[in-house]
Design a protein around this nucleic acid. Structure first.
Lengths: 212, 212
DNA sequence: TGCTATCCTTCACCTATGTTGGTGAGCGAA
DNA sequence: TTCGCTCACCAACATAGGTGAAGGATAGCA
């Protein structure tokens, strides 16, 4: 269950439920996920848990460590994960400016986090789940990890619940409803979205271009 | 209702409900709030609104503009606001490194945003309101804007609702409950916290040092 | 082959919060 | 002074989502 990081190692592997980083630990490196999924979360003393970030292939983990604070939340692998280790200092803004992939990725993460504030604060269960599936699909698509209208979806309903602020039971109800409405097909850890536009509308997201 | 920014002007003023920045506008400057409160929000097409950030005196507004993207959410003054205009380019990481006040402030903002994800996803109404009042008090205290156990609290119950993801009616119920429990005294836009520890516990926040 | 654990699914019931529709106090403008 | 507006506050009722419990499918493993 302990992370096996050697800071000199260029690559590391993690198994499901293994920690990439524990709370308040001093990060030695920033990971870049090559393969697999991970998440950051906080757990309250009575057991309530909220996932606060999802890390997919290509993502830096966690970019904000570059801003110079200890992680206040643990990061754990959701699937088998292969990751590269980057030095914890960020690329200087002088070299590449704020446009470097790294800083843009931090920007994306903040933007996603802000969108989740809106979803958790104001949206219904169906809108929340739709938002999640849509975000997953579009992030994977940008990394070339979708196949037509399909992509992998290894999350359990309990993990979906911890992302969306719902209970597993209600996630199940909601997924059933979405299935009967033809919004998603979801089985065997594989997601198919018959009509991306319909799902976007169901998610009450801002309209969005088709830009890759 | 239009912002009166002259990018050459070192100081600007805004009245309540006046925009500091509109959606998708190209920011010419980053404001630093000298006095007054402002917020960033998103409004859904059916009117639901969620406030996603609060800007208090001393805060940069918005620090993430320095990362090089257009603001996707409007920013509006909640009270009379006086602000200074800073160039939109961030201090280079070479000069001052990531420890500069500016980057630390961005880091704080991300941290606060993450904490709100947990609150909106998993906490009860009372915990949410407690979290908000506590955060306000402690941020103001760090800026020397508290007086003993008291501080200003210009937010209307509707604005509290839009921060906490509740309805104004339920915010009212919750505040009444907190009053009867002696957790807060709140009247005439002025907040008094008789027992900070009790309020922290009610907010289900992580324990926290007394560090200024 | 059976054992165990995890996950998905469904049911009946419950409650925290939303909704609707009021009241009255305060305050600025005319 | 009255009008118009915002805001705090209250009450009755409605509902989305939570709770607790149970059964069935699937997969790893001895």
């Amino acid at each position: 269950m302990l992370s096996q990081v050697e800071s000199s190692e260029p690559h590391v592997h993690f198994r499901p439920h293994q920690f990439l980083m524990r709370e308040d630990e001093e990060p030695a490196v920033i990971f870049q996920i090559d393969e697999g999924w991970a998440c950051r979360y906080r757990q309250l003393s009575d057991g309530r848990r909220q996932i606060t970030a999802l890390y997919l292939p290509g993502d830096y983990c966690d970019p904000q460590w570059a801003l110079g604070r200890k992680p206040s939340q643990p990061i754990v692998a959701l699937t088998n994960v292969r990751a590269s280790c980057l030095p914890c200092r960020p690329p200087t803004t002088s070299a590449g400016g704020t446009q470097s992939a790294f800083w843009l990725s931090l920007n994306d993460m903040i933007e996603r986090q802000t969108n989740w504030l809106v979803t958790l604060g104001r949206k219904t269960a169906l809108e929340r789940v739709a938002h999640l599936l849509l975000e997953l699909f579009e992030r994977l698509r940008r990394s070339g990890l979708t196949y037509g209208q399909q992509c992998a979806m290894p999350l359990t309903q309990m993990e979906i619940a911890d992302m969306t602020g719902l209970t597993p039971v209600h996630v199940n109800r909601t997924l059933q409803l979405m299935r009967t409405r033809g919004l998603v097909e979801l089985q065997a850890k594989w997601l198919r979205i018959p009509d991306l536009g319909a799902l976007r509308q169901a998610a009450a997201m801002r309209a969005q271009g088709v830009a890759a």
